[in-house]
Amino acid sequence: MKLENMYQEIILDHYRHPHGKGLRENVDAQVHHVNPTCGDEITLQVTIDPENPDRVIVSYDNQGCSISQASASILFDQLNNQSIQTGMTAVDHMVAMMQRTEEPNEDVLGDGIALVGVAQYPARVKCALLSWMAWKDAAIQAQGEESHA
């Protein structure tokens, strides 16, 4: 059965026990992204450490299916306390993996490579990418704030 390809145990673990879920106060940027076809939504925040601009703090709250929830938890693991450059590279790899133009890259995506099975189901790709697109949007906004500061 193909289902196990999509719902690998590691995905279900992140879904049942999400990492880093919860919003913060006083953030540099906050975005709210929805998947209008199904109603999944995420509020995602980024905060650039004033002491170390290469340390970007990620926080989020979301509701939705197992794939969108697990993907956000994985994103937190991979991108919290990382630089914007690292994050942008990870987003590019995640998108390419979903478009099946690139093999899963564990060094960049960590547990995110377990989402590779989702690429087989075009209707669910948006679920997997929701949080990553939200992070990218928030990171760009935070960077803009930074350069204006």
Binding site: M1, K2, L3, M6, Y7, C38, D40, G64, C65, S66, I67, Q69, Y121, R124, C127
Partner: peptide, 12 residues
């Protein structure tokens, strides 16, 4: 179980 995930199993 989120409705999306229910639908996915049904689809299978």
């Amino acid at each position: 179980i989120h409705p999306h995930d229910v639908g996915q199993v049904l689809d299978e």
